[in-house]
Amino acid sequence: MAAVLALTAVGLNLVFGVMRVVNVAHGEFFMLGAIGAWFVTHYLPVPAAMAWIAALVIAPLAVGAIAALADVTVLKRLKYDPEATIVATIGLLYIFQQAALSFYGPDARPVAPPFHLRLQLPWFGYSGYKLFVVVAAAVILLGVWLLMTRTRAGLVMRATQVDRDTARNFGIDVDRVYAGTFALGAALAAAAAVLIVPIQQAHYLMGHDPLLLSFIVVIIGGLGSLRGTLVAALVIGLSDGVISMFFSPTLAKIIATLAVALVLVFRPQGLFGAKE
């Protein structure tokens, strides 16, 4: 699903672009979003559609809050040193995974989609919900784009991305920007998970594949370049399906990971990224 992949990868890239932090725990924010959606829809005594919409609001907010907390308590103290933060986010990954396993359990559980609708085209049927996911993801991405380019918050974030120290000299509270960015990135992953969870099931290990794929997308698209990320997400999201049709999924993954490693070695700025 290219649309959901784009959401997750944009979240990862936002964090990398603004904060220069490679967030290895990003896939776990995705997983927490899906599990949050399950909890909300399971315990909220309202119809399925309402509960799902509630989940789409609550889960990203909750995950964003967790991320902000992680940023303030851990990452900030490391002064965002790139290598130390990777080690720390690996630690966070284990903590989140274990928390999900302890409180949610090892089972995969389904979440009911908000509506069942099948579009019957003359030559094939198509699940209406999947189309809705694409539209919803596009709307959220548009929102992110507007936020980054048209609002003061976006301006502040971009200013911090360009030069942290100068931004601080202009009176920008860099710590708050970082916490906000980290929360926003995590919330995007969570939102993507809520969108996908009626199609996939919620599972405590589900963060692995989105992490790997969004890494691939971000690297191919160029670290820190949101437009490249979008293009790459579409290309990879679609080609992943195509490759899997011809080869086994494992072989597809081997080829993809090796390709990414080689891209990083020979074109570190990404295929679409501009040279710095």
């Binding site: 490391l78 720390a88 690996i90 630690g91 966070l92 990954l93 284990y94 903590i95 274990q98 302890s102």
Partner: peptide
Amino acid sequence: WLFFVGAALVLLIL
């Protein structure tokens, strides 16, 4: 125990 591995990593690096 995974929790302890994770916590150990975070605390150590901190």
